[in-house]
Amino acid sequence: MHINYDFGDLEAFLAVKETGSFHGAAAALNLSQSAVTRRVAKLEQALDTQLFERTTRAVNPTLAAKRLQARAEAILDDARETTRAMRDESVAFAHQRGALVTVATVPTVLSRLLIPALQAFRAADQPARLRLLDGSANEVAEAVAGGEADFGLCSLPTLEPSTLFEPLFDDRILLALPGAHPLAGQEAVALGDLKDAPLILPARGTGNRLLIDDALARARQPIVWTMEVGRSTSALELVGQGMGAALLPETVFSAPTQKVAKVRLQGLDIARPVGLLIRVGAAETPAVATLKQAIRTAV
C-alpha cells in the first residue's frame, strides 16, 4: 500500500484540531493559511476520508479526525524520538565518524618524512586515528587505486589511470657499507672497488631494482650480486651484521650508526622520485588534508 502523506501533513492536521481553525494552525506552524489547507486536503485525500467539517463560523473535527488524533500523535512522537536519538548518537561518536586516516606508505620514508609529519599533525590537536599500510611501491599504488587508502606515500610506481603522483623530493640511491669496511670512510666509492664485499640488491621487479638496473645499463657497468632482498630495511640489517654492501635509498638511513656507513656511488647518479599518490576524485576530509600538508612541510 502506497502512503501518500508525510509528517508535515500530520502536523498540520493536529494543529487545526488543537486550535480549532486553519488560521490558528497557520500561526502555530509559521505557515500560510493556504499551505495548511493544502496539507490537510492532501491528508484527507490520502486517507480517503473527511477530517473536518468547515462552516463560516467554525471548523469541527469529524469522528475520523478524533480516531486519527492518537495515531498521528504517536507517529510524530516516534519520529521526534528517532531524530533525537540519531542526533545524540552522532554527537557521541563524532570523534570517530570520518576521523580515520589510512595512509599507504613504503617503509623507507617513515623516519625522514612520515614521522615528522605525524608529530606536526598531533601538535595541531588532530584527533583522527591513523592506519598505516606499509608495503612496496606497487602495493601502495594498488591500495590507493582500490580505495583502501586515503592517499599513498611512495616512489613513483606504475600509475593507474585513476591516480595522480605529486613529487616531493628525489631520494638518492647510496652504497651501504659495514662500519668496519676499509672503504667506509670514503666520500665516494665505485662498485668495482667492492671486490671483497658481497653485493646486496633489491629484489627483481621492485622500483628500486628497476632504477638500479637501468642506471647500470646506461653506464655499461656490469655487476655481480650475491643476495637479493625484498625490503630495504632487511638489506640494511644484513649490512649492519657485516653480510655485505647494499645499494639503498638514502631515506633508509634513519640515524647515524657505527654498524653502517653510507657512501656516495662514484660515477653513478641514481635517484627515485618520492611523493604523494592520490586517487582522482577521492573525497578529502579535513584530517586527510592536514596530514598531506604536514608531509609537504616535512620535506
Rank of each mutant, 00 (worst) to 15 (best):
R272P: 00
T37G: 10
A25M: 03
E53C: 06
E160G: 08
F253M: 03
A261Y: 01
K66W: 10
I115K: 09
P167S: 05
L51K: 01
L47E: 03
I270C: 02
A137S: 04
A128S: 09
A26C: 11
S136G: 05
A298L: 10
D269M: 04
T108R: 14
F165P: 03
I223R: 05
E237S: 15
P167C: 09
E148S: 13
V252P: 02
A79V: 07
R80K: 07
R54D: 06
L113Y: 05
D78R: 15
A85N: 15
L31G: 06
R38S: 11
G179D: 03
L291N: 06
A27T: 12
G20D: 09
E166P: 02
T19S: 12
V274G: 03
R218G: 02
F165M: 08
V229Y: 02
V299P: 15
T257A: 07
L265N: 08
G244N: 10
L43Y: 00
V16I: 05
A72T: 04
S111N: 09
L63N: 10
S155N: 09
E228R: 10
L248P: 00
A255D: 11
A74W: 06
L153A: 01
F93S: 15
Q186G: 04
S234C: 14
V252T: 06
E160H: 13
L238H: 10
F13W: 01
T102L: 03
A99C: 13
P249D: 01
D6S: 13
L183F: 10
Q293R: 10
I223C: 01
G185L: 02
R80C: 00
L68W: 00
E139H: 14
A128P: 02
R296I: 00
R39N: 03
V299E: 09
A184K: 03
A85S: 11
A15K: 06
L238C: 08
E18P: 07
E142A: 15
L175A: 04
S136Y: 05
V59W: 07
R71G: 15
D171F: 01
A141Q: 11
R129F: 03
T158N: 14
A123M: 08
R54I: 10
I3N: 05
R122S: 07
K195E: 15
E44D: 07
L68E: 07
L216P: 00
C154G: 01
E81D: 14
E148M: 15
G240T: 02
L159P: 04
G152I: 05
E187V: 03
R279M: 12
P273Q: 05
L199W: 05
S90W: 13
S254N: 14
L201K: 09
G20N: 10
Q266S: 14
V299K: 12
G152M: 02
K195S: 14
L247R: 00
S90V: 13
L174D: 10
K42F: 04
T55V: 11
L191F: 05
P182S: 15
T108G: 11
V144K: 06
V36N: 06
K195R: 08
